[in-house]
Design a protein around this nucleic acid. Sequence first.
DNA 1: GATGCTTACGATACCCGTAAAGATA
DNA 2: TATCTTTACGGGTATCGTAAGCATC
Lengths: 309, 309
Amino acid sequence: MNFQQLRIIRETVRHRFNLTEAANVLFTSQSGVSKHIRDLEEELGVEIFVRHGKRLLGLTEPGKEVFKIVERMLVDADNLSRVVADFAEGEDGVLRVATTHTQARYTLPPVIARFKTAFPKVRLNLQQASPKDLPGILLEGDADIAIATDTLEDHTGILAFPYHTWDHAIVVPRGHALTKEKPLTLAAIAEWPLITYDDGLTGRRRIDEAFEAAGLTPDISITALDADVIKAYAELEMGVGIIASVAYDREYDRKLVKLSADDLFRPSTSSIAIRRGRLLRRYAYRFIEHCNPSVTEDVIRASDNSVAE
Amino acid sequence: MNFQQLRIIRETVRHRFNLTEAANVLFTSQSGVSKHIRDLEEELGVEIFVRHGKRLLGLTEPGKEVFKIVERMLVDADNLSRVVADFAEGEDGVLRVATTHTQARYTLPPVIARFKTAFPKVRLNLQQASPKDLPGILLEGDADIAIATDTLEDHTGILAFPYHTWDHAIVVPRGHALTKEKPLTLAAIAEWPLITYDDGLTGRRRIDEAFEAAGLTPDISITALDADVIKAYAELEMGVGIIASVAYDREYDRKLVKLSADDLFRPSTSSIAIRRGRLLRRYAYRFIEHCNPSVTEDVIRASDNSVAE
DNA sequence: GATGCTTACGATACCCGTAAAGATA
DNA sequence: TATCTTTACGGGTATCGTAAGCATC
């Protein structure tokens, strides 16, 4: 058994059991890949892949177990270099944060500003992505930290901690009829065409839940990927906007009025997440602490037993 | 980086940084060992070992982190073969249980009997050891399961679950003055020379605690490694025996009387433990369930996040 | 017929072990 | 001086890549 074999197993699975592709990303030959797989299977005494003649189609049952362990070993192999980087300098390097529009645009700027002054030598790489892609980005090792709402918690292999809790709010043009509704009700809102987030985004789940519980079927006329788009259409009087409360800026959004909807929709919690078993640089733990001071390095390590002391 | 290098790191640490010994247990040459270490250090870009000239003396700070990860990787490498064995047959193999006299002699026989009928093809290897050696045995991989009182809980790298809770009891010859003491008190017991377990064994801690809390300094005249020795001397009227309640057998110990001491000493809990991150054969999980039905495979895997689904 | 996996084979690089030299206690 | 580690070097082996042969779709 050697590491090349393990890498080949991983890439073969990642590339949907296409050995040619796996060979390419590993900068080696197909023949070598093929042989390595057979060698490992022979050494372990079990078929890792399901075959149809010469084609590989998937993982066998033992293969699934093998794959899980192989992935962990490769993460650890990566951790080895990481350990060293951390001891070598400690204060410079790269931190890759993957997150959604809402977080990147509205909640993270102050966190990042403080982090930058604390770790001026760390190059921060913020990559915006769709929420549903974030787990994959984290698991493939393309980011160190992911921040989003709703999509990170339930994933195996991902460790999620609370970042912050927030509410939805209604935005309408100044003088809109809804501004006179006191108290504001779901029924009143449902009278209007709605503009809000696309499915699966930024707490959209909570919005649907609320209307359903109230027995209402709202007319959602426009769905968007971010609050800026929603606000733009709300300004154009295309309907009533529902956005994350933090996405309203009194300064910039002068044409709109924000109406509190704390009582109408259940609050959403955004999470900050890392890949289980993955060792982070010290400053990455500090970054997480900046996000939520109660999530310290000790807390994280305790949750992530595989890296426990 | 290759596995031989990892094995060399592990064995070098295990053999107190003597490369010659490490080479011997790995059936290779000193020179190879030496070179592998330097190669790995160079690849990682860090010194793993503290050196005095040419002698290795210990682990550097980054070396300690490296060692932790290396150990986990090797456990995983082992797990790979284990996975397969489990899928290959499932019902034959070896189960190695390391435990203390008390458990082996008094509490485990019925468990083992039931296990044997459930898994007739599994070769059970029961090794008796001193409690303080059990964590090491488990960590070195010389046993799959360890069962003992007090010594397994606090060890990092070991996962302990409750096995059973038991009380101490007093044993004295028939007609002994203490049999008339009702209720039995610590003060009354402390009047006599005592015969009990050696330090660190079988809940001895609880006994000391009780006397200390009562402000008594008992005369412990004989300490033994097991209840059979204690009972033998109690029969010889050398003093009052204090043993695990389960170690009294009405049938065999006819010359002795057991007096309940449930109210005098706090109960002890014995644990059943495995190495963290180590994959066990299916029947090993069944064995643990036989010991304590509430500790199922799911419970264990949930506790041991590094093997979680 | 196009894509993808396996087998065969020659070149290369890596790993191992012996032996000698150097360092430590 | 005895024990232990490093360096040097030669032999063996495993890995790799090219190319050809076959299956699958």
